[in-house]
Design a binder for these strands. Structure first.
Lengths: 172, 172
DNA sequence: ACCAAGTAGTTAGCTTCCTAATTATCTTGC
DNA sequence: GCAAGATAATTAGGAAGCTAACTACTTGGT
């Protein structure tokens, strides 16, 4: 069951082995393969998500912002959004620009801080989330539908650990 | 051992549960969480990889192209590169432009096909790969170093199945 | 042999994200 | 109480990916 069987998986164990050998390194080809596949999978899933959100006139970033806003009561400062979504403040500015243009959020100056502002989910923004919910969650569910409940738990755990490890890629 | 313990995982099970409830849907919050975390993890890993390759003056796409070229004997047509790397031909044109500007690849018209051309790994390109190999593979290894050999095999299997499932996101 | 349709590569224009620099405001330390 | 430094948001500019449209060549049907 754990047999490979795929056939079209982009980087193969063979390629990984060949590369490691080629440079005379003692790295574990399996570990390298996992890392490379993960990077590749990240890009593919990201693109699939982008296409998914595009069906609703949103991007991954815009949807995440909208959903985060609603989950937080409909109001949040751009800085907090940036921190919570783990993107830069400049990116949040861009996402808000697009969402504001479509009337899904509104900006209001902050009452407490003269420098700051607050992003507010509009009725139209909330409606958009409501409209897409059934299909959105349905598709998300079918995305992982091939995994059993236990497998999902395992995957969640492994994924978290690998994401933590990915910090090592960029770190120093 | 499978305990959460993370604390900073971006979307939580609570959030997923709240959202599903909020819309009165019967989706499984755990499945939704897995999907959402995967999308989020994909973006994070992608950015980490981008930062990693930037240390060597490359991007993820450029590195993948260079590595694929070397693995294939140093010569390949842009179309095949696009197919093998799973990006569009236009993207390959852009990657080749950048790599050619830095002298890491060269372009030559195809002998067999008057429309086609061939990308060739230059000595300098091969050298670049050689220079970065020890650190590159070392970092890749440490990225998944938190996983045992068995866990890596499981992860590889689950990852492949979930990537296949991600097609369902965009499909239809 | 020739015209139609397909394919290779590029170009143009879009989006997302980034970093760095700018402007305005807040907060501290003296 | 005011100058110096931090912080909020924006702007400007860059890279990677996409699709669609264009050019040049090849191939296949009649």
């Amino acid at each position: 069951m754990t047999k490979d069987g795929a056939g079209d998986e982009t980087p193969t164990l063979e390629q990984a082995r060949r590369q490691v050998e080629h440079y005379g390194l003692d790295a574990d080809p399996q570990a390298v393969l996992v890392a490379v596949r993960l990077i590749s999978a990240g890009a593919r899933v990201g693109r699939a998500a982008e296409a998914h959100f595009a069906r609703f006139g949103l991007s991954t970033g815009r949807y995440r912002l909208l959903a985060d806003l609603e989950d937080h009561g409909g109001e949040k400062s751009p800085s907090r959004l940036a921190a919570d979504l783990e993107v830069s403040r400049a990116t949040v500015t861009g996402l808000l620009d697009g969402l504001e243009r479509e009337g899904l959020i509104a900006r209001r100056p902050s009452a407490e801080d003269g420098r700051g502002s607050v992003a507010i989910l509009t009725a139209r923004g909330a409606q958009r989330l409501r409209d897409m919910a059934p299909e959105h969650f349905g598709r998300l569910e079918s995305m992982v539908g091939g995994l059993s409940v236990e497998e999902r738990a395992v995957f969640l755990d492994l994924l978290a650990r690998v994401v933590r490890g990915s910090a090592a890629l960029a770190a120093d």
